[in-house]
């Protein structure tokens, strides 16, 4: 029986239990970053809010540039091997249309996540990013697949 584990804003979860499904419900401009070791079947997901770390804030999982390395060390601690690890990402939508710079945060988040993965040399195996719809995402620890569901649309599998 699959067990759904919700990852809240600025939180992360790691699992090596093939029954576990890590998920974020109602993802908008935030990004869900999934790291996976397909050999040892260990997965981790983080729910990122902002592109860059703000000095004085203690939670690294809120910011793309600190969340990706923090998630990497978290899944390594559980036994994931660096050389196996791949990434899948989703989110970063522009929910409201208009000129307000606040609305562009989704794109900035996506760019910062890609940059962080690149600098850690983690291959990006799949992404469903941008657009103007919210998503619910489900990351299966058993096989590393990422299911993306938007309102009124069919499921996309990454």
């Amino acid at each position: 029986m699959a067990r759904k584990i919700t990852v809240g804003m600025a939180e992360y979860r790691v699992s090596n239990d093939p029954e576990d499904v890590l998920c974020i419900l109602g993802l908008g401009s935030c990004i869900g970053v999934c790291l996976y070791d397909p050999v040892r079947r260990i997965g981790g997901m983080v729910h990122v809010l902002l592109p860059e770390h703000i000095p004085g804030q203690s939670n690294p999982f809120k910011f793309a540039d600190t969340a990706v390395p923090a998630l990497l060390s978290a899944i390594e601690k559980v036994g994931a091997s660096r050389k196996n690890i791949v990434a899948k990402i989703s989110g970063g939508a522009k929910m409201f249309s208009g000129a307000d710079t606040l609305f562009d945060i989704g794109k900035r988040n996506a760019d910062a996540v890609r940059e962080a993965l690149k600098s850690l040399e983690i291959p990006l195996k799949g992404e469903d990013i941008g657009g103007n719809r919210g998503r619910s995402i489900f990351f299966y620890v058993a096989d590393g697949r990422l299911e993306v569901k938007a309102l009124g649309k069919d499921v996309t599998v990454l």
């Binding site: 908008g28 401009s29 929910m95 307000d100 719809r133 919210g134």
Partner: peptide, 21 residues
């Protein structure tokens, strides 16, 4: 005003992002 219809989480995360700074 800008309007959007979607999942609650997705609609509010933009302002939550703003506050969370």
């Amino acid at each position: 005003p800008s309007i959007a219809v979607d999942m609650a989480g997705a609609i509010v995360d933009i302002v939550l992002i703003e506050i969370s700074q």
